[in-house]
Structures are given as structure tokens and as C-alpha cells.
Nucleic acid binder design. Structure first.
Lengths: 145, 145
DNA sequence: TATTGTTATACTCTATAACTATA
DNA sequence: TATAGTTATAGAGTATAACAATA
């Protein structure tokens, strides 16, 4: 049976997705650097700015070991963007939450993500709808993250 | 003027692209790990397996500092996947080339990239053509990389 | 002088394993 | 015992600056 990756059309699409991935990261890291944040720090800040999360769950969302989150949150906390709060219902748990300053930074971060604007601006509303539907079907029901 | 990122449809598409990026990396890193390679090592190996490249140009392709490439190629060379060759026309230049073993590993790596098959298999040929065209227009003429 | 590649240094991210305090 | 978070450790990627060899 022929491999999809051997199909020229699929190969083109995979290459394009590779370009999208590269572009996504460039823009994300550049936006993060604007605030003197690393990519990982920006991701954690953006995540808990939505709502506070226990360290463990941050690790799950980032798909990394919990021990790594300690350092990332340490550095965010040292800059006053994040704070650790005790969980009254389980004193083992520490909930990481964005401070007012962190929330503001997260908002600026999101706004400065040109990726949302510039590349997609080349597409009409109908095109974006088509793209959304195709990507949805491609990604499938990953209700995971 | 309204920001595209505030548009719900664009927001959806950006979120989906985020999922694609995450998925792409998961699969890429997993495929690399199968051969005990890191993501960066796999990228360099895949790059120079196409054709040998001076250290400087590898750095340009990876958009990182040339000093980093030294270490990555060191580790690939230590495993016999890559070798440094002198450039007769300019004795400052060292050209990194995949060995026979490295070329084979690069091929296996490409074949084991399920990303090409599984998610795109959900799309018909017509869908993939549409997706290709949309992504092409979105990425634009980045003849750079 | 400018360029190529390397070295030295420091920081961050990453996984693993051992530790603590709770449960 | 099991779990949440941390610490300790080691390896890898990254940028910066200084260096040797060559242009």
C-alpha cells in the first residue's frame, strides 16, 4: 500500500505545515522576547492567566515533567508576574496564578502575536472558514489539551 | 480598526494552528527519539542528508548562532551519522555531510514521520489540494528557507 | 580587515531520581 | 502507601564574546 508521505500532494502539504510551524515559533518567540520571556515562560504565563492552575496540571498541559515547572514558575515569580497560592482543600497543592502585572503582560503578549493577523489577513473570511474546517477535520477530536 | 485576533473565526483558526504545531512537534520529537536523536539533531541530519552544507549555512537554515551548530554536529559526528569535510575552494569552510549511516537514518526518520499520514488521511485528495492552496497563500512567497 | 568555525561561558529547558510534606 | 511539589544532577540547546585560521 502506498505511503501517504510518498504522495507528492501530501508531501507539499507537509512541507507547508513545516513552514507554518517554523513561522509560528518565530512569531511566538519574538513576541515573548519583547517581554524578556522565553517561549516556555510565555506559554505558562498565558496558560495560568486564563485561570490559576496547580503545578501538576501545568506540567500536564506542557507535556513535561513537574520538576521543570518549578523552575519556570520560579523565574516568573521572581519577576512578579506569577504567585504561588496554597490550596485550602489540599495542603500539598500549590496553585500558580498570574498577578495583575502578569495578567497585563499575558494580554500584551496575545495582542502582539502578529501571527494571528498578518498571514491570515491574506485569506478572505470564506477562505478562513474553509481552512478552519479542514484543520478541524485534520486534527480531529483532540479534546485533550 | 478591528484586530484580526479579536475576530472569533480567526481566533479559532489560530487555535487550530496551535494544535497543529503541538502535534507536529510531538510526532517529530517522537520520531527523532526512536533513533536516539534530539529534535535539533534530527533537523540538522535531515537537512544535510539532502545535500552537504557548510556549518554557517546550517546555522542560517536553523536560524540560530553558528556556535550552536558546532555542538550539534559534534554529537552527530560522534555517532558516525555525519562527517566534516574540508572545502577545497575555501579552507576556512567545513562542510557537514551525512555518512551512509546518517543518510539511512534520515530516510528512516522521514518514513516514520506519521504526521504525513495519519492526520492528513482524514482529508480527501480535493481537500488536501484546497488545504495546500490556502496554506500557500497564507505563508506567501517565503522562498527563504 | 572581514569571515569561518571554534571555544568559553552562562542561562534555560528537559528528564531522572531522591527528598519533604502532606494525604 | 500514594501524591504534590521540590531539589539535585546531568545533558542539550541557545546567545554572547573572544579566539585561531584563512580570505
Amino acid at each position: 500500500m502506498p505511503r501517504a508521505s510518498r504522495d507528492p500532494l501530501t508531501h507539499e502539504v507537509v512541507d507547508l505545515i513545516g513552514s507554518v510551524v517554523a513561522r509560528y515559533h518565530e512569531e511566538y518567540d519574538r513576541a515573548a522576547a519583547t517581554h524578556s520571556l522565553t517561549g516556555a515562560q510565555a506559554r505558562v504565563l498565558a496558560l495560568i492567566a486564563l485561570d490559576p492552575l496547580p503545578m501538576r496540571q501545568i506540567a500536564r498541559a506542557l507535556r513535561c515533567e513537574p520538576s521543570n515547572v518549578t523552575g519556570i514558575v520560579d523565574r516568573l515569580e521572581a519577576r512578579g508576574l506569577v504567585e504561588r497560592r496554597p490550596d485550602p482543600s489540599d495542603r500539598r497543592v500549590k496553585v500558580a496564578a498570574a498577578t495583575a502585572d502578569g495578567t497585563r503582560t499575558a494580554e500584551q503578549l496575545r495582542d502582539s502575536l502578529d501571527f494571528a493577523r498578518e498571514p491570515l489577513a491574506a485569506l478572505s473570511r470564506a477562505d478562513r472558514t474553509t481552512l478552519r474546517d479542514l484543520l478541524q477535520r485534520m486534527i480531529g477530536e483532540h479534546s485533550d489539551a
